[in-house]
Design a protein around this nucleic acid. Structure first.
Lengths: 102, 102
DNA sequence: TTACTATATTCATATATAGACATATAATTA
DNA sequence: TAATTATATGTCTATATATGAATATAGTAA
């Protein structure tokens, strides 16, 4: 199957370290989506979306399956969403510090 | 002060996306450390450590202060450790899947 | 079979990142 | 002041990453 999954901790963060990939994950919070739905909402070319999906898959974040002409992608481990949530909260604290609350 | 902090969500993950930086954070789990302590334990040159520290600081993960000749660094938001912990747990699940538990 | 739709891949190129090595700076001590 | 220690920075180079544009592939429908 060639479906090797030799991933490091740094690879997980690397996979998340791009705005388009974060947007993809956000869209997958409510369940699986086909590539065309992602392409419709995300402001970049289809080949780019495919490439970013491939990265997220290679690093074990996404799974996918064919459904006719479409390919459906989903997030394999909900803890990935927890990572997004935590980092969002961290950013919020950054703002508060800037305005002197901290 | 030039201490601007214009950081995106992707920047946070980018900051964590390197094994040396992960090792630094791990060493800072028990509190602040000076650069020389990090250099003593991490298998890379001092200038590299300094640069990785600069990246972590720029992206808001670390704070630092001078203490005589030394510079002490610490993790500003304990949620950063939670990110490490979650990603470690995700990796563990990856293994289990490989060995067919999943 | 041909045409069409959804997705992936190749190629070329631009930009970012990492590390080696040398050097600079700042605080301390002699 | 000069020497020493701890840390940061500059330069160069290698490698990785991201993207546009074109093209390939797979499944479906006619």
């Amino acid at each position: 199957m060639g479906d090797e999954l030799r991933v490091s901790q740094a690879d997980i963060f690397k996979a998340l370290a791009h705005p388009v990939r974060l947007q993809i994950l956000q869209m997958l919070q409510q369940g699986e989506r086909c590539v065309c739905e992602l392409v419709a909402e995300i402001e970049t070319e289809q080949p780019n979306i495919s490439r970013h999906l491939a990265i997220l898959k290679k690093d074990g974040i996404l799974g996918c399956r064919k459904d006719g002409l479409k390919v459906m992608y989903w997030v394999r481990d909900r803890r990935a969403f927890k990572l997004l949530e935590l980092s969002r909260e961290m950013l919020k604290s950054y703002w508060q510090e800037k305005s002197g609350v901290f």
